[in-house]
Amino acid sequence: MRPAFLTCLIGLCTLGACSSVSDPATDPYGLWMGKLVTEQGICPTSDVSSLRIRGHEIVFNPGMSSSTLKGTYEKGQQHYLAELVDKGMNGKPYRQTFSGYPVGTAIGGTYTSPRCRAHVSLTRR
């Protein structure tokens, strides 16, 4: 075989592998991970955050903390919302939310709590 033919064949195989990455707008199911980037306050940025979409369930874990934000997903949605409302130390509600949306082959989103606001770009694992 000619070297030029092999080079073209390898290039086409590589492009085929890249095009098989599914778009979260049509297939968001699976595990997505990324690091929070603080916009305001004190956020859990030292560890990665995870988003899992499985069946009708959305679970977001900010910075691998003990907090687990939950939501529901219906096929075809372009918005992923999860929240957790705990009782704070002062007895008032302590609300944490994750609001995400498809951005190319990633899921972008915003995490908010009374102590912090951060954005995140999550990639499929």
Score class of each variant (00 low, 15 high):
E74D: 07
S65G: 08
A82S: 14
R52F: 05
N90L: 05
S49M: 08
P44S: 00
S65K: 00
G30H: 12
I53N: 08
P28V: 00
V48G: 09
L81N: 09
S67M: 08
V59G: 06
D23Y: 04
P28Q: 02
Q78T: 07
L84C: 06
D86K: 02
Q77W: 11
W32C: 08
R52G: 04
L81S: 14
H56Q: 04
S20T: 06
S49N: 14
S20V: 03
S46A: 11
K70Y: 13
V85F: 02
Q40P: 15
Q78I: 04
K70C: 06
V21Y: 11
T38S: 13
P28W: 03
G30M: 02
C43H: 01
K70V: 01
R52H: 07
G71F: 14
K87P: 05
G88L: 06
A17S: 09
G76T: 07
N90M: 08
L36Q: 11
R54Q: 13
K92I: 09
R52V: 11
D27V: 02
L36C: 06
D86I: 03
L69F: 11
V37M: 12
P44I: 04
A25F: 00
S50P: 13
P44F: 06
L84A: 02
P62R: 04
W32M: 04
S46P: 11
C18M: 11
T72P: 10
G76A: 00
S66M: 04
T26L: 10
T45M: 06
T38G: 04
V37C: 00
D47I: 06
A82W: 06
G91E: 10
L36P: 01
Q40C: 07
C18G: 10
L69T: 12
K87M: 14
D23H: 02
D47S: 15
F60C: 07
A25D: 13
K75V: 03
S46K: 14
P28H: 00
K75E: 09
E74L: 08
P24W: 04
I42V: 03
L36S: 12
S66V: 09
Y29I: 06
M33N: 06
S66I: 12
Q77S: 15
T38M: 00
S22E: 15
A17N: 05
Q40H: 12
